[in-house]
């Protein structure tokens, strides 16, 4: 146990694309809007329970809006990623922080996914899987061109590595 002192993980070098904040905001807004709308409509039709339903809808809306204002910019500050010659390194999470590291030689597949909202913001998610059932790494909110280049780079490196990566 020599020289352990205060070893810490350094943050990965790259941040996500700034548009990720807007993407997360719209996701938050959508997930808030649906139940709020349902409650509000129910309140409009069901007279006796109107106060309660509208109160619940209002509380939910306030919470959702507060979350929308607060979390995405925090997420943007903590989500980071980096790809070196040897490994993929990703940091995620705000309250539950998580660092994931996968060596290049063990990567099996590289997928790029673009959901409808992501397409709207010209973003993409890169998923890197290894032979472990629990070792997948996701990098969300990348600019779609960066994501494509990254996926291509990873595929090239992993193809050059021999073995079945287990």
């Amino acid at each position: 146990m020599t020289g352990e002192g205060t070893v810490r993980l350094r943050p990965p070098n790259n941040t996500l694309n700034e548009r990720a904040v807007a993407w997360w905001r719209s996701q938050c807004l959508l997930t808030t809007a649906v139940p709020v709308a349902v409650l509000a409509v129910l309140g409009a039709f069901i007279g006796p329970a109107r106060t309660w339903l509208w109160f619940a809808a209002g509380a939910l809306a306030v919470l959702g809006l507060a979350g929308t204002a607060f979390f995405p910019s925090w997420w943007y500050r903590v989500h980071r990623w980096e790809v070196t010659e040897e490994a993929v390194y990703v940091r995620t999470g705000a309250l539950w922080q998580e660092w994931r590291i996968a060596p290049m030689s063990r990567i099996q597949t590289v997928d790029t996914v673009r959901g409808p909202l992501e397409q709207l913001f010209r973003l993409a998610t890169v998923t890197v899987t290894t032979a472990s059932a629990k070792g997948a790494i996701r990098i969300e909110g990348l600019d779609h061109e960066v994501a494509a280049a990254l996926a291509e780079q990873l595929t090239r490196i992993t193809h050059a590595t021999p073995g079945d990566a287990t």
Binding site: L95, W99, I101, A102, T130, S132, A133, K134
Partner: peptide, 30 residues
Amino acid sequence: VIGWTLKQSWFQRRAGVLTLTATTAAGDGA
């Protein structure tokens, strides 16, 4: 060992501890 996952909740950060997970192709996977 084919990768590491490190997790630290807000409480763990205050207590100065973290959870290290070794991922592997075998058994439970982690």
